[in-house]
Amino acid sequence: MEQDWIWGLVGGLIIGSAAALFLLANGRIMGASGLLGGLVDGSGRSNWQERALFIAGLVLAPIPVASLYTEVDTHLTSNLAVVVAAGLLVGIGTRLANGCTSGHGVCGISRFSLRGIVATVFYLIAGGVSVLLFKHLLGVI
């Protein structure tokens, strides 16, 4: 669709506002993998309520908004082996790197953090290589 980039920009501004609110109000970096990771492995026990409520909002708030769309679909592949492999890679990778698209990408780049910029360069290149390999060369996605 031609308006996709406008919705991308609007959605991006909302995402950035969420990160700005979390930083200015609570003094915290809005990183999805870190907030969830610290909750599941117990390393974030000291502020588990803040983490759990952030995730509750993240999961629940899209429900009423999604009902405004005629169709909302993630178009995720039905190949569960691919889904499991991808989930494992994302889980291991984001915890090793201590951040994902929100923490390193949005929060890191916006403060000119070298770690954020380097991480973003590596996951963008790896993502491009992954699509090239699994879609165009191997044809599994």
């Binding site: 999805a32 994302v90 994902c100 590596f122 790896a126 993502g127």
Partner: peptide
């Protein structure tokens, strides 16, 4: 870590958020 994450991100098109 970022390389592994990127591989999984490309494979399924989903990241943690």
């Amino acid at each position: 870590g970022s390389t592994l994450f990127g591989m999984g991100w490309g494979l399924a098109g989903l990241c943690p958020g």
